[in-house]
Write a protein that binds this DNA or RNA. Structure first.
Lengths: 345, 345
DNA sequence: TTGAAAGCGCTAACAA
DNA sequence: TTGTTAGCGCTTTCAA
């Protein structure tokens, strides 16, 4: 195993001082072209790489972002991560990723662990338990200690920081509105997001779109699937569809939307002729179901990219004020909804 | 913004020396219980956290693992990551993750960038381009420089390091064999893995299982879907099923298996009565298709856990020899294959 | 039981 | 243009 090359070694071998080497490697104008060339060539040849820890210690920065994600198996978060990683890399940053599995404790511990020079800032989405318990002091402390945070998707008003959010209300409103334009009258709402704010926003969008289209709200058409195992979805969705002549469905996640598709088919309903179905989160399931699912796309990658860009901007010029960026959702029309025909202009 | 607490500050405020503080915080026996208590209490109160970079610099280790993954949107890799992250955390390690998007250059650059104290070792799965070009020197260099590597899933004989692999041959053999036991005679093979070794192993397993069951191999039943966009799958799968009376399918990924299901249904075939379908990678799609897909599970999480455990073991006692661990696949029977009835004992 | 001092690898102000 | 030196925050040897 080869010893790792250091500046000191280079200096000794080449008979110059340590600082000369340092400056030469950083392409300083203080050093003559000749020595620079010599030192750089030697460094390259010997595969010299500056020790990150030493550089970080000196510069008081790590060029590393701490990314805290509730669950990497959730395709939406994997999309956000992918976007984040891409931008971070382009801008010369690394990403340390932690998964909370929705646990408050894991979230708090992770932040604690990383807030000591390991990372320069956080990009995170709040764990469900944290949001339920409304325990936000770990975020506030980090910010107070000078570690900036960019929250995405699952955010809270209780913490003053940069935020990248989906227009959950609008997305849901628009999807519901779309169904009414398709002449749906009995639109069901499948809720899977429990205590999360974004779940409430989606629900409100649904309610308001109904109201604006003069469709009476029917409590029976709303079912809560939070904490229900996906295999049990059909048991709850089947009676809903059967009893109420449901002709439209808004689902807050993909899995429940797919389940609705399968249940509808089993009940002999034609999709989209008899019933139109829209799900949130434009993930893999939507693209492979039969019929393919119309979804409200949240643009996960873009959210990730935007979040990292914002964090790095903040790191590189400290003063910038906190902002909240809304990434518009868009309705990706596939085959689980009728085509909307515009009747002349 | 509060200043960050350092050992030096603690020492000054408490009127003791820096080394006393250091020792007290590390619970050294050299320090009296009284001073220890005082210092520890003060540190806790003031939210002292040792600076990671300083500690790393001193200890020549970062307690960080570099994880290099071809694509986080691939559910299998997300599973591996999840398992890896869990174990790393339990054992006090952090994970810096990079995504290669199958690019050789990204892979090499990433390793270069991290091999300087940022990480203590790598856990990685080889990018497709790398495997195609057979350019493995970046791996060898890292190892030579003293940075251990654990490869998983996509590995190569050309590099001597620890490896965690799936028994692709056995998994495929077993799946094919299972179909023959179900009385399938015309078993198609959908290949999606291009130049990857694991694709070849799966193919060989299929071939050998056919031979062992005295089923003549029919070249026409094998189609290559590598680099075919998933939306185009049906165009290639439809004629295959139609022409050859296919009654069994082995697919090397989920998406093509799901596509086979959808095509079969469109052709009026009953699943599993008329045709049985098995796909590799036990991911989300399998659980939400209709009928649910029987899959060869690779136990992604376990692979991730095993890989990280092996790496940390190696880091903590240098001498251990390189090993290759095979994680057995298992056939997860769902509804796309007939139930196998054991005819008396 | 406590403290002084060297050093991890690097940067940068200042001196030569 | 080059070198000396101090110091980033911490650990650890050795001396007190």
């Amino acid at each position: 195993m080869k010893q790792k090359m250091t500046i000191k070694q280079i200096a000794q071998t080449l008979g110059v001082s340590i600082s000369t080497v340092s400056k030469a490697l950083n392409d300083s104008h203080e050093i003559s072209e000749k020595t620079k060339a010599k030192i750089q060539a030697f460094a390259k040849e010997n595969n010299y790489k500056p020790n990150t820890n030493a550089v970080n210690l000196k510069n008081r920065s790590s060029k590393t972002i701490g990314m805290i994600i509730p669950n990497m198996l959730n395709h939406f978060f994997a999309q956000v991560f992918s976007g984040a990683e891409k931008v971070a890399n382009e801008r010369g940053y690394k990403i340390i990723t932690c998964v909370t599995n929705e646990s408050y404790q894991k979230e708090a511990e992770t932040m604690e662990m990383l807030s000591n020079g390991s990372i320069d800032g956080f990009v995170l989405s709040i764990a469900e338990e944290t949001q339920m318990k409304k325990k936000y002091s770990h975020f506030k402390e980090a910010i107070e200690q000078g570690t900036p945070i960019v929250m995405f998707d699952r955010v809270t008003d209780a913490v003053d920081c940069d935020k990248i959010i989906t227009d959950d209300f609008d997305g849901s409103y628009h999807a519901t509105d779309h169904l009414t334009k398709l002449q749906c009258k009995n639109i069901a709402f499948l809720s899977t997001l429990g205590d999360l704010n974004i779940g409430k926003y989606r629900y409100n969008g649904y309610i308001e779109a109904l109201a604006d289209n003069n469709i009476p709200f029917n409590k029976e058409l709303v079912i809560d699937l939070t904490n229900v195992y996906y295999k049990e979805y059909p048991k709850l969705i089947a009676p809903l569809l059967k009893k109420h002549g449901v002709d439209g469905v808004i689902a807050t996640n993909e899995a429940s939307a797919i389940s609705a598709i399968n249940v509808a088919k089993e009940q002999g309903l034609s999709i989209p002729e008899d019933i139109s179905i829209i799900g949130f989160s434009n993930g893999v399931l939507s693209r492979h179901s039969s019929p393919k699912l119309t979804t409200v796309s949240q643009h996960g990658e873009l959210i990730g990219k935007t979040a990292v860009n914002k964090l790095i901007d903040k790191l590189e010029r400290k003063d910038s004020p906190n902002t909240t960026t809304v990434i518009k959702t868009s309705l990706v029309e596939r085959n689980s909804t009728k085509k909307y025909i515009h009747l002349h202009g």
